[in-house]
């Protein structure tokens, strides 16, 4: 039977960083990716906070990560994990098409965009409701749009959209932003970005396409309607961790609980990146997680007598 030393589930920055290290440790490694290597990084127009690189495109940075992982021997396969169960040798990972066997696992599945759950959001998805300004902004050139949220992603989306659209509203439930200071400065300086503070979205309105949103001021209770063409949702992320239940302990929001060495509650299962509880969800922190998890895997395999010790 074909047994991997480690299988890394997820091919974003955390998973690929781990693969570079397990590859260099000469541990037979498989990176199992659901959709496309790069993860959230592929949705990023430009990256300027990754140390050592002044500015680059998300996609280009990802290509280098992948090339580097493959250079050191990591294999890549596409598949969505349906089941994960312990067996006599370690773990069995079942995807739609294959069953893989491995001694250890690094979970680097990241997170997905959270939905607001208001009427119209699902119905008008792809008809003016989006989670990707760089993808869909161009459809709304010279039009009025809104971004929902107050974190880094929301402001990054708004700053991208301000150059394309006539007017950008940032609709935020609180009266202060969580985003990086530099992003706040850029957004506030833009003449065509306006903030709707203490405001929640109640409905996205439209028949064939988005025509307006209904909002409510949570302080005054006042309701109003804003005519616009698109709504970009950036209210945070939800972890891709459902398949780990009940094997691995998760926090109350579904993120994977881990030690500083990235060990989870299950022996031989490690975690890295956005899916980990208390992660800052940056490319650099994900890379750090991935490297830590990879080194922990090597040590764990050694201590468990599954690979010869180095000395």
């Amino acid at each position: 039977m074909d047994i991997y030393k480690t299988i890394i589930i997820g091919g974003g920055p955390a998973g690929l960083a781990a693969a570079i290290y397990t590859g260099r440790a000469r541990l037979r490694t498989l990176v199992l990716e659901k959709v496309a290597t790069g993860g959230q990084l592929l949705l990023t127009d430009y990256v300027e906070n990754y140390p050592g690189i002044l500015q680059t495109e998300g996609g280009r940075l990802m290509e280098t990560f992948l090339e580097q992982a493959q250079k050191f021997g990591a294999e890549l396969a596409y598949g969505e994990v349906h089941d994960l169960r312990p067996n006599a040798d370690g773990y069995e990972i079942v995807t739609g098409e294959e069953t893989y066997h491995t001694l250890s696992i690094i979970v680097a599945t990241g997170s997905s965009h959270r939905h607001i759950g208001v009427p119209g959001e699902k119905e008008l998805w792809g008809k003016g409701v989006s989670v990707c300004a760089t993808c869909d902004g161009a459809f709304f050139k010279d039009q009025i749009v809104a971004v929902i949220g107050g974190g880094d992603s929301a402001l990054t989306e708004a700053i991208f959209l301000k150059n394309l659209c006539r007017q950008v509203y940032i609709i935020h439930r609180r009266d202060e932003l969580r985003a990086e200071q530099i992003l706040q400065e850029r957004a506030i300086a833009a003449s065509n970005i306006s903030f709707c503070w203490n405001t929640v979205l109640e409905e996205i309105v439209g028949e064939k396409e988005v025509t307006s949103v209904r909002v409510k001021n949570v302080k005054t209770g006042e309701r109003s309607e804003i005519a616009l063409s698109a709504v970009f949702v950036a209210i945070g992320m939800t972890p891709n961790s459902g398949f780990l239940r009940p094997l691995v302990k998760l926090d109350e929001n579904g993120f994977v609980l881990a030690t500083h060495q990235m060990a989870t509650s299950a022996p031989g299962i490690f975690v890295a990146g956005d899916v980990r509880s208390a992660s800052y969800r940056q490319i650099a922190t994900s890379v750090g997680d991935g490297v830590t998890a990879a080194m922990s895997v090597e040590l764990w395999l050694e201590n468990s007598g599954l690979i010869p010790a180095l000395k």
């Binding site: 959709v35 496309a36 790069g38 592929l42 949705l43 990023t44 998300g58 996609g59 990707c132 760089t134 993808c135 161009a138």
Partner: peptide, 10 residues
């Protein structure tokens, strides 16, 4: 479109 990352993903 060429500027769409998720388009490249699929």
């Amino acid at each position: 479109a060429s500027w769409c990352g998720p388009c490249r993903m699929i």
